[in-house]
Design a protein around this nucleic acid. Structure first.
Length: 956
RNA sequence: GCCGAAGUGGCGGAAUGGCAGACGCGACGGAUUCAAAAUCCGUUGGGGUAACACCCGUGUGGGUUCAAGUCCCACCUUCGGUACCA
């Protein structure tokens, strides 16, 4: 019985915590500092918990338990992100209602998470599919719908920085004269319907956001996605582009995530320039002197980040979908143009990127005038220009842009150099038989050079009668030419974003219904707040229709709201519920409002948010956007929701050792094998023989050089790799199995001991056994494992610790506390192991030391710690015991052993008083026999003493 | 291509510019046992030595420094993100 049996201990303590509501958090507590520590809530899939989930959850749980002992009021909730595609697909497959499967999955996830002993406040559990929750998701949508973005609004943020641009109530939108006020308001709302080219995924039967499309395939499932125009709900996230970037400065997030978000928003600065179209040989009308907001009729407006290269624009390209294509196309080219546009329309984004190698396009027959040279330049259409970025048209400068260069080479369009590259670039890229004057050669024919110079340089060949920028470095030339264009009314400075507005509707059943109504002319009116929630109607047939017609169209009664009004039948995307769940946790049962403002002020922002890096742009960008709208509308008090973000690294499967055999059974060198979807094949083998993949045991391999080889056939290299866990690979670790075999504490401890929280690391069952053994040793350090009944080990007694023990206790308390604070759990485990190693050999184990150890262990292995705490004679949970303290004097040693270096190499060691000064250390070192012998006959040029650390003689 | 992170024993990993390899796994040796499991105690970067000494060693090549895994420059590899974004 008194052996360590986690299976007996753990359920008992889980029941205790639940019964005593140990981790219920008061809504407000002004006496203690607050801490809001949040996990990314899981999507409860049918596959159950993955070992990746407990990694982040354990890290936050340790910190929460630690901080409670440190006297903080800690909010630590859990919930379910339960709307979404997989639940619906599974429901369709099994012909069960998604509500049923979702509920079952949630129950399973809850059971699994509870079995790991996390200190969540379960009274705050939220479920995004609960009408009591999505009622407020709909409410927030209405707030967004009720908001417009005032770009010129000036205000001061809580950091005291002056800011420009803010979301304001639609009622405060000034209506210009002569417009329909309702239509004008609708055109300015942050939530709007628009016909846009969308990513339609036939396999999933829905449209997808840009963020959900990767390489022309759906993020989920990898199905092809095609472009088609559809009327959809959009959220005007682009209005917040600047603030989403700027406020990355005030959050404590990993640089990589901030960079990813910055790149995703993709702000660039440049200029818009108008190129007049030449109509039937007539010269264009002279510029008006003012750059209009909308381009005049016969003008192609382009966006460029390199206005300084304007003199080198030798042609223009319109996206095939550009509205001016028909107007500029001449009759003799119209057939070719029409054909090309048709082809481009049929191509999915995937095809377009596949063909990225060779540029295609056709000449329209039309010409425009380069506004600085006055020369006519041809207008082409090509699908390397995207309608969705900038103005959908470019000025092409083949000398200084690789894409334009490639296109110009293909279609034999003149290339004109307008930026002077540095001399070494010219040298490196010059053609073989170039004359001595490389610059002259470059000016004459940049197309003959082997590279394209796209960096900044110095402007050349850039002058007309009124304006010249020759000799200007790029950084000066850009504003100079932009200013000149602005003065002429031909252009102006402009900013562009890669970020597109967020496509916010889906043609699916399992999502939040939009709380809006449409009339016969599709004009939108929101439902009243008193009508929320707009319940998702029960449907027997919730299958996607296979067309862009959403399944909710089948709920005929529900759709028909009144004689004139019908309900919106699209649903919200999965991201909607997760955009604000951290706000609902602070007041989860409020039926009057989404959250109480007092509680919001107390708890926000989230102090620490831990989750996987896969949400770097999607969820984290979307929820920041919603939060900012809520902030602008005065509904939350902080500009950012998540103050600190930490990404846990992925846990890979166990390292696999693989070799290959050909069909005859002979080993094949790994280097000659490539992976294909059929399996590994031999490189360069036209018949693509499918080889046998052989997974090897560790005793079949041996280290050689950089890697491993087969023991029996040392010429065959072995692949050693840890892969992502996946069902198909069969390397998935089920947490349930680990818990039943080794206990939750071992799983928790192992996942923390594997390595740094942020690192990607492979699983090892042997490693789990290692920490399990450690917990057994800790148990036996305190508990008499040979006794019949539970009892303290006889060596544990009320005794004064030896000086060494006292020091170890103090050092361990200090180090473990520091490690917890800094989320360095792997080294915290090491410290506790060292402690146990030291006390295992001790004949006297002072009880106070054992108690301190138990409290230090508690955040990581709470079940075992609670049990030990009770055995040590305490009745109550240790969850709120004060963190152990120590006398800082004990951290200092009286004497230290320090290395003596000669020329930087350790030659001896001496023991000196810890506070010995430089002279004393040097004297002690010189007194050392070995040192004295080695210094014999050498000149000591310099002596470096780092007191308490080392001494180095520079001598030769 | 671009952005970011990381390369340390057989393996996971540890090291405010100051003794590289803490802690764990694995391996080897021993104690205990009739035997095994479990447990406990040792050894374990490579070369070298009877044992010391000594030499080499943190992806590669340079540099800064009394001293570099750590800082600087160039490169290589792996992982993550992203890509006709004008």
């Amino acid at each position: 019985m008194p052996a360590y049996h986690p299976q007996r201990i753990e359920p008992r303590w889980q029941a205790y915590w639940e019964e005593h509501q140990t981790f219920a958090t008061p809504d407000l507590d002004r006496d203690r500092p607050k801490l809001y520590i949040l996990d990314m809530f899981p999507y409860p899939s049918g596959a159950g918990l993955h070992v990746g989930h407990p990694e982040g959850y354990t890290a936050t749980d340790i910190l929460c338990r630690f901080k409670r002992m440190k006297g903080f009021n800690v909010l630590h909730p859990m919930g379910w992100d339960a709307f979404g595609l997989p639940a619906e697909q599974y429901a369709v497959q099994t012909n069960t209602h998604p509500r049923v499967t979702t509920q079952a999955n949630i129950d399973n996830f809850r059971r699994q998470i509870k079995s790991l002993g996390f200190s969540y406040d379960w009274s705050r559990e939220v479920d995004t599919t609960d009408p009591g929750y999505y009622r407020w998701t709909q409410w927030i949508f209405l707030k967004i719908h009720d908001t417009w973005y005032d770009r010129d609004f000036e205000w001061t943020d809580p950091q005291g920085r002056p800011r420009k641009g803010k979301g304001r109530p639609i009622a405060e939108l000034p209506i210009p004269d002569g417009v329909d006020p309702d239509a004008y308001r609708d055109s300015r709302r942050l939530a709007y319907r628009a016909e846009v080219p969308v990513n339609w995924c036939p396999a999933l039967g829905t449209v997808l956001a840009n963020e959900e499309v990767i390489d022309g395939k759906s993020e989920r499932g990898g199905h092809p996605v095609v472009r088609m125009p559809l009327t959809q709900w959009m959220l005007r996230i682009t209005a917040y582009g600047d603030r989403l970037v700027e406020d990355l400065e005030i959050v404590d997030w990993p640089k990589s995530i901030r960079d990813m978000q910055r790149n995703w928003v993709g702000r660039s600065e440049g200029a818009e320039v108008d190129f007049p179209v030449v109509i039937s040989g007539q010269p264009p009308a002279p510029p008006s002197g003012r750059f209009p907001d909308k381009p005049a009729e016969n003008v192609i407006r382009v966006y460029t980040t390199r206005p300084d290269t304007l003199f080198g624009a030798t042609y223009m390209v319109l996206a095939p979908e550009h509205p001016l294509v028909d107007r500029v196309t001449t009759p003799e080219h119209s057939e070719a143009v029409a054909k090309y546009r048709e082809q481009a329309a049929r191509k999915s984004d995937l095809d377009r990127t596949d063909l990225a190698k060779t540029k295609t396009g056709v000449f329209t027959g039309g010409h425009a005038t380069n506004p600085v040279t006055g020369e006519p330049i041809p207008i082409w259409i090509a699908d390397y220009v995207l309608i969705s970025y900038g103005t959908g048209a470019i000025m092409a400068v083949p000398a200084h842009d690789e894409r334009d260069f490639e296109f110009a080479k293909t279609f034999d369009i003149p290339i004109r150099a307008v930026v002077e590259p540095p001399a070494d670039w010219l040298k490196a890229n010059a053609p073989k038989e170039a004359p001595a004057d490389l610059l002259a050669a470059y000016k004459a024919d940049p197309g003959a050079f082997s590279g394209v110079f796209h960096d900044e340089g110095v402007s050349i060949q850039s002058r007309n009668d009124e304006f010249a920028m020759d000799g200007m470095p790029t950084a000066e030339a850009k504003p100079a030419v932009t200013a000149w264009l602005a003065e002429k009314g031909l252009g102006k400075k402009a900013v562009n974003y890669k970020l597109r507005d967020w496509l916010f509707s889906r043609q699916r059943y399992w999502g939040e219904p939009f709380p809006v109504l449409l009339d016969e002319s599709d004009r939108v009116s929101p439902v009243g707040e008193d009508e929320l929630p707009v319940l998702l109607p029960d449907l027997d047939d919730f299958k996607p229709t296979g067309t862009p017609e959403p399944p909710l169209s089948k709920a005929r009664e529900w759709v028909r709201y009144s004689e004139k009004l019908r309900r919106e039948i699209n649903t919200m995307p999965q991201w909607a519920g997760s955009c604000w769940y951290y706000l609902r946790y602070i007041d989860p049962n409020n039926t009057e409002r989404p959250w109480d403002p007092e509680k919001e002020k107390y708890w926000l922002p989230v102090d620490l948010y831990v989750g996987g890096a896969e949400h770097a742009v999607l969820h984290l960008l979307y929820s920041r956007f919603w939060h900012k709208v809520l902030f602008d509308r005065g509904l939350v008090s902080t500009p950012e929701p998540f103050q600190r973000l930490v990404n846990q690294g992925m846990i890979l499967g166990e390292t696999e050792y693989t070799a290959y055999r050909d069909p005859a059974g002979a080993w094949v060198a790994a280097a000659s094998v490539v992976q294909s979807d059929k399996g590994p094949i031999r490189k360069g083998d036209a018949s693509a023989t499918v080889l046998e993949t052989v997974k090897l045991e560790e005793d079949q391999i041996v280290k050689k050089g950089e890697g491993f080889v087969l023991k029996d056939a040392p010429e065959i290299r072995v692949d050693a790799r840890a892969h992502k866990m996946s069902k198909s690979r069969g390397n998935v670790i089920n947490p349930d199995v680990v818990v039943s075999e080794y206990g939750a504490d071992s799983l928790r401890l192992y996942e923390m001991f594997m390595g740094p929280l942020e690192a990607v690391k492979p699983w090892s069952m042997k490693g789990v056994e290692g920490v399990y053994r450690f917990l057994g040793r800790a148990w036996r350090m305190i508990v008499d494992y040979e006794a019949e009944e539970i009892a303290l080990d006889q060596r544990v007694k009320d005794a004064e610790p030896t000086p060494e023990q006292a020091k170890l206790v103090a050092r361990t308390i200090a180090a473990v506390g520091d490690d917890y604070e800094a989320l360095r759990f792997n080294t915290a485990v090491s410290r506790l192991m060292e402690f146990v190693n030291a006390f295992t050999g001790a004949e006297v184990r002072p009880k106070a030391a054992m108690e301190a150890f138990t409290l230090l262990l508690a955040p990581m292995a709470p079940h075992l710690a609670e049990e030990l705490w009770r055995i040590l004679g305490h009745e109550k949970t240790l969850a709120y015991e004060p963190w152990p303290t120590f006398d800082p004097v004990l951290l200092k040693d009286d004497e230290v052993e320090i290395p003596v270096q000669i020329l930087g190499k350790v030659r001896s060691k001496i023991t000196v008083p810890a506070d010995a000064d430089a002279q004393a250390v040097e004297a002690a070192a010189r007194a050392d026999a070995r040192v004295a012998a080695l210094l014999e006959g050498k000149t000591v040029r310099k002596v470096i003493v780092v007191p308490g650390k080392l001494i180095n003689f520079v001598a030769n």
